[in-house]
């Protein structure tokens, strides 16, 4: 490039030296663009295997249980030794809401108490890693039929596993088991809080050294909802002190009290629950 060359943007062509340099810059940017795109894409954490059958409605017949969380228990039969194969499907609502409201409306509308009755529900399935949930939406007329009250053999099998402290991450099961990827961790934290705040039952995701996972439903000491209480512990490592009960194919954690959930490590500028923070939180709200 001659020292006298001068670039003016509104001229039809750039001087030779500028044009040659710009070409080199374009090639460098091209390499940068592809490199960054490929590296960032392949370095992403593996997407979960969750499935959400969006737009596909399925009829499920089973026994509805209101507690500990709204769920429908579906039998597939018994083996030669008399053991049952069944699946308990927790119910959730449309969007970021629980199913309680819809079920209450259905009960009022039909003048019937659905608890422990065999019913057929129509909804959207979502599932991952052996756990199945069903979204019911008032717009889909989810209650197909109400049959008889279930027999004793359909009542949940409960096995007390004592009081334990279990470490894991609180997730909202709707996103985690199918609707979003990732449905866990910091990027999803706000959404999980919104879902749990909307009534979706919180789940503790527990991982062992091999990377295998278990998922336990969280309720209060007496089976009451504790959605509001768990909000500040979502998507962060926590230790949960709870009475553990195997409740059919789900494990239920009856959290001992409000202090039964505590964060593990992490930098805190101010102690959680301090007056300064609750004041800031109130101001923001």
């Amino acid at each position: 490039m001659s020292n006298n060359e001068f670039y003016i943007g509104w001229m039809p062509k750039a001087p030779g030296g500028f044009a040659r340099h710009t070409k080199k810059v374009i090639i460098a940017l091209l390499i940068l663009t592809i490199t960054v795109g490929v590296l960032l894409a392949i370095s992403q954490k593996k997407f979960g295997t969750g499935q959400f059958e969006f737009g596909q409605l399925t009829n499920i017949t089973g026994v509805y249980f209101k507690e500990p969380v709204p769920a429908i228990k579906v039998m597939s039969g018994k083996d030669l030794l008399g053991r049952s194969a069944y699946i308990t499907i927790p119910l959730i609502g449309y969007g970021k809401s629980g199913a309680d409201g819809i079920l209450l409306d259905l009960e009022k509308l039909q003048h019937v108490d659905l608890n422990k009755k065999e019913i057929t529900l129509k909804g959207t399935l979502l599932y991952n890693d052996g756990k199945l949930l069903m979204q019911i939406d008032a717009a889909d007329n989810p209650l197909v039929s109400v049959n008889k009250t279930a027999g004793e053999n359909m009542l949940p099998l409960q096995k007390e596993l004592g009081e334990q402290t279990i470490q894991g991450e609180i997730v909202d099961p709707k996103c985690f088991f199918g609707v979003m990827k990732p449905g866990e961790g910091k990027p999803h934290k706000d959404c999980a809080i919104r879902c749990i705040s909307g009534g979706i039952p919180p789940v503790l995701k527990v991982t062992n050294k091999e990377g295998d996972c278990n998922y336990y439903l969280l309720v209060g000491a007496h089976g009451e909802k504790m959605n509001e209480a768990v909000k500040e512990f979502v998507a962060t490592p926590v230790a949960v002190k709870a009475k553990v009960v195997a409740y059919d194919d789900w494990v239920i954690l009856y959290v001992t009290d409000q202090k039964g959930i505590s964060p593990i490590a992490g930098w805190q500028l101010v102690k959680p629950g301090s007056q300064a923070i609750s004041c800031i939180a109130r101001c923001i709200k």
Partner: peptide, 15 residues
């Protein structure tokens, strides 16, 4: 540095 580490935990299922 502040990135949280999720601890490993013995699983209850399958038993």
């Amino acid at each position: 540095i502040a990135t949280p580490k999720f601890p490993a935990q013995t699983l209850l299922q399958p038993d």
